[in-house]
């Protein structure tokens, strides 16, 4: 796909044979990603249903158990993810304007922020696991009185864990984008993978925007 000469040929060599033109290919890819986002929302939706059902049954459990979560670090992580969302949006803007250097720098910052998020998450997890706040059966912490505290933390680990998996996948995608951008694949006429990955990353951000108040800020 990559060619170094900036000829007319290069402008079009990304169009696959079954599309009429570049525009149709771009619109198709974007619609495909939106359909995929629908599936992601419903997949997390399942966990939110579990969250809501248990919260409606045991509101006092949530009040009590969420005190174990550190709202400060949750807030820091929210800032980090929103910042990364902003840099992804800037990366897309750079690609649209043919500023490949800007694209690569913005992707680097995004990757850095995503790593920061995961590192903070790691410290949060290890602090809890050290206290014996493990999911379900392995829950041994005795600082909470509610008998179903293990269920709250099962839900907590499932939600943040699945979200963490998504962040990790996102980091992989960003690195792939950097590699491609360095090979000069992207330009203002073709930046579909950047756009698509951007949509994915914003979705990961949105899910965290809901997880943060629902898990950390109950009191």
């Amino acid at each position: 796909m990559s060619s170094t000469s900036a000829t007319e040929e290069k402008r079009l060599d990304h169009v696959q044979h079954h599309f009429v033109d570049s525009e149709q290919q771009f619109e198709s890819a974007k619609m495909g990603m939106w359909v995929f986002i629908v599936t992601e929302i419903l997949m997390f939706g399942g966990l939110f249903v579990a969250y809501i059902v248990y919260r409606s049954w045991y509101p006092e459990l949530y009040l009590e158990a969420s005190t174990q979560l550190n709202a400060f670090w949750g807030m820091v992580n929210t800032f980090v993810l929103i910042g990364s969302s902003l840099t992804v949006a800037m990366a897309i803007r750079s690609a649209q304007l043919n500023q490949i250097k800007g694209l690569i720098y913005n992707l680097y910052i995004t990757i850095g922020l995503a790593f920061t998020f995961m590192v903070i998450k790691y410290f949060e997890y290890s602090e809890k696991l050290g206290k014996g706040i493990a999911p379900g059966e392995y829950y041994t912490y005795d600082g909470l009185e509610h008998e179903k505290a293990n269920i709250f933390f099962s839900i907590y680990y499932m939600m943040t864990g699945l979200h963490g998996v998504h962040v990790t996948i996102g980091i992989g995608l960003m690195i792939w984008l950097v590699v491609k951008a360095k090979k000069n694949v992207f330009h203002s006429e073709y930046y579909t993978p950047v756009e698509i990955t951007g949509l994915y990353w914003h979705l990961v951000d949105i899910i965290w925007i809901f997880l943060f108040p629902l898990l950390y800020l109950i009191d």
């Binding site: 248990y54 999911p135 379900g136 059966e137 392995y138 269920i151 099962s154 680990y157 499932m158």
Partner: peptide
């Protein structure tokens, strides 16, 4: 996860 970790939901 229920089987592997006994999350109990």
């Amino acid at each position: 996860m229920e089987r592997a970790l006994g999350i109990g939901i």
